[in-house]
Simulated assay, not measured.
Amino acid sequence: MTDGAIKTGVIGLGYFGSFHARHHAANPKSQLVAVVDADGTRAAAAADQHGAIAFSDHRDLIGKVDAVSITVPTSLHHAVAGELIDAGIHVLIEKPIADTPTAARDLMRRADARGVVLQIGHIERFSPVFGLLRERVGRPITVECTRIGPWKGRAVDVDVVLDLMIHDIDLVLALVGSEVVEVEATGSPVLAPTNDFAHAQLRFADGTLAYLAASRISDRSERMIKVVDAERYWMADLAARTITSFGRNAGFDNRDEISVPPSDNLALEIDSFLQAVASKSRPVVDGKAGLDALTVADMIIRRIAEKPRQAAASAIGGAH
Rank of each mutant, 00 (worst) to 15 (best):
T2H: 06
V117Q: 03
I300H: 06
G63S: 08
I6H: 00
N265H: 09
G9A: 15
D206K: 04
K152F: 09
K7V: 04
V181Y: 04
A25L: 11
T71L: 11
I120G: 02
A236N: 03
A313L: 14
A87T: 08
P308L: 06
K29D: 12
E257D: 15
D99K: 12
E135Q: 15
G63H: 06
I166V: 14
R282D: 09
V285Y: 03
H78P: 00
S56C: 05
F252C: 08
R114H: 08
V183C: 11
G251K: 05
G318H: 08
M165S: 01
G318S: 10
L164T: 06
T242G: 03
R42S: 11
A54H: 08
I169M: 06
S69Y: 02
D264S: 13
A45K: 12
D39P: 02
I304A: 01
V158S: 00
I316T: 12
G40V: 09
D298I: 00
Q275W: 08
H77Y: 10
S221I: 10
R42I: 10
A111W: 00
A103M: 04
T242S: 10
T8E: 07
R136C: 05
G51Q: 07
F16W: 13
D168N: 15
G12W: 02
Y211T: 11
R110T: 13
D219Y: 04
D264H: 09
D112K: 12
D229F: 01
A205R: 14
A200G: 07
V227N: 02
K288H: 10
I316H: 07
T102K: 11
G251W: 05
V284R: 15
P193A: 08
R309G: 12
H122K: 05
S127W: 02
N254G: 15
L212S: 04
L76E: 11
I6P: 00
V68N: 02
A81M: 07
E179L: 11
G4Q: 11
R139H: 10
T8S: 07
A104F: 01
A43K: 06
D159S: 15
S259T: 14
F246H: 15
A276N: 04
T2S: 13
A297W: 02
D112W: 01
G4C: 05
G63M: 10
K7M: 04
F246K: 07
I85P: 01
I217D: 00
I6Q: 03
G121L: 05
C145K: 04
C145G: 06
W151P: 03
A43S: 10
N249H: 14
R203W: 04
A276W: 02
T41E: 14
R220S: 09
D229W: 01
G207F: 12
A87G: 04
A239L: 15
I148A: 11
S188T: 10
R223H: 14
Y211S: 14
M224N: 06
V158Q: 00
G177Q: 09
N254L: 13
R134T: 04
D168W: 07
N265P: 08
